[in-house]
Computed example of a mutant assay.
Amino acid sequence: MQLPNHLIGLPIASIGWLLAAILTGWAIRAAPWSALRAAPTRIQLFLVATIFLIGMWSLSATLMPGLTLHFLGVATVTLVIGLELTLIAGLIAAILSALLFGHGLAIAGWTFLLSAALPAAITYGITRASQRFLPPNFFIYLFIGVFLSAVLGALAHGGATAILIMALGLYDSDIIWNNYLRILPLLAFPEGVINGMLMTALALVSPQLVISFDDHHYIDGR
């Protein structure tokens, strides 16, 4: 979401930053730093993922102040570098996006929570559930772990953004429904398609880069 600083009060901004700090603190403690040090390529991948998030979030259309449609790309990042590193990359991307595009740092905590943490958690949960309860099939990985999680992440991001906007008292429910929520599904489907295309290419061309994908498990002998 994109709000100028004067449209968000200090208490709401502080709550967003507090929650962002708690999640990022957990991610920093839980991140596989030893594995990163052992494979410098993973560090480069983390930096590329951060830049990728900033680029995806910049592809936006502002319907009304605070009501912005933009791609997320979080499903791909989560599946490639893992949940913990995605949270860290998401906070960096939220801060840099605020500085680069003049959105205001006050809302950056909520930008991280809604544009990164929430869809990342959805992707992680759906992928883990599909790996545990569904057959190890490449198409299940793509359609459930990638496409479905990306679509649901986009819908959850939009719904949570609408709730926050109403909590701030900027617009009433009718305005948000007619000018934002009704249009949201038009973005959710392309979000799934984009992430699906990216993950298909990565899984087939460079499966070693995708932390959530094992080509021997999903493809060999299937």
Rank of each mutant, 00 (worst) to 15 (best):
Gly90Met: 02
Gly90Leu: 01
Leu91Glu: 00
Leu91Ile: 02
Leu91Gln: 00
Ile92Pro: 09
Ala94Cys: 04
Ile95Thr: 07
Ile95Tyr: 05
Leu96Ile: 15
Leu96Gln: 12
Ser97Trp: 10
Ala98Thr: 06
Ala98Phe: 06
Ala98Arg: 03
Leu99Cys: 11
Leu99Phe: 10
Phe101Tyr: 15
Phe101Glu: 11
Gly102Gln: 08
Gly102Asp: 11
Gly104Phe: 01
Gly104His: 02
Gly104Asn: 03
Leu105Cys: 10
Leu105Gln: 08
Leu105Phe: 11
Leu105Trp: 09
Ala106Glu: 15
Trp110Asn: 01
Trp110Val: 00
Thr111Ile: 12
Phe112Lys: 01
Leu113Phe: 03
Ala116Trp: 02
Ala116Cys: 08
Ala117Ile: 01
Ala117Asp: 03
Leu118Lys: 04
Leu118Trp: 03
Pro119Lys: 01
Ala120Arg: 05
Ala121Trp: 03
Ala121Gly: 10
Ile122Tyr: 00
Ile122His: 00
Ile122Lys: 02
Thr123His: 00
Thr123Glu: 00
Thr123Phe: 00
Thr123Gln: 01
Ile126Tyr: 02
Thr127Arg: 08
Arg128Met: 12
Ala129Leu: 13
Ser130Gly: 08
Gln131Phe: 07
Gln131Trp: 07
Gln131Met: 11
Gln131Glu: 13
Gln131Arg: 12
Arg132Lys: 14
Phe133His: 07
Phe133Ser: 05
Phe133Gln: 06
Leu134Gly: 04
Leu134Gln: 05
Leu134Arg: 05
Pro135Tyr: 10
Pro135Cys: 09
Pro136Thr: 06
Asn137His: 10
Asn137Phe: 09
Asn137Pro: 08
Asn137Gln: 11
Phe139Trp: 14
Phe139Ser: 13
Tyr141Glu: 04
Tyr141Phe: 13
Leu142Trp: 06
Leu142Lys: 08
Phe143Cys: 08
Phe143Thr: 11
Phe143Pro: 09
Phe143Tyr: 15
Gly145Met: 02
Val146Gln: 01
Val146Phe: 02
Leu148Val: 09
Leu148Gln: 06
Ser149Leu: 03
Ala150Glu: 02
Ala150Asp: 01
Val151Cys: 12
Val151Glu: 07
Leu152Asp: 04
Ala154Val: 11
Leu155Asn: 00
Leu155Gln: 00
Leu155Ser: 01
Ala156His: 04
His157Phe: 15
His157Asn: 15
His157Trp: 13
Gly158Glu: 02
Gly158Leu: 02
Gly159Cys: 15
Gly159Asn: 15
Gly159Arg: 14
Gly159His: 14
Ala160Met: 08
Ala162Glu: 04
Ile163Gly: 12
Ile163His: 12
Leu164Glu: 04
Ile165Gly: 05
Met166Ile: 13
Ala167Ser: 14
Ala167Thr: 14
Leu168Thr: 08
Gly169Glu: 06
Leu170Met: 09
Leu170Cys: 07
Tyr171Leu: 06
Asp172His: 13
Asp172Met: 10
Asp174Lys: 11
Asp174His: 11
Asp174Gln: 12
Ile175Trp: 10
Trp177Tyr: 13
Trp177His: 12
Trp177Ser: 13
Asn178Asp: 15
Asn178Ala: 14
Asn178Cys: 10
Asn179Arg: 12
Tyr180Ala: 04
Arg182Met: 14
Arg182Trp: 12
Ile183Ser: 11
Ile183Trp: 10
Leu184Cys: 12
Leu184Lys: 13
Leu184Glu: 13
Leu184Tyr: 11
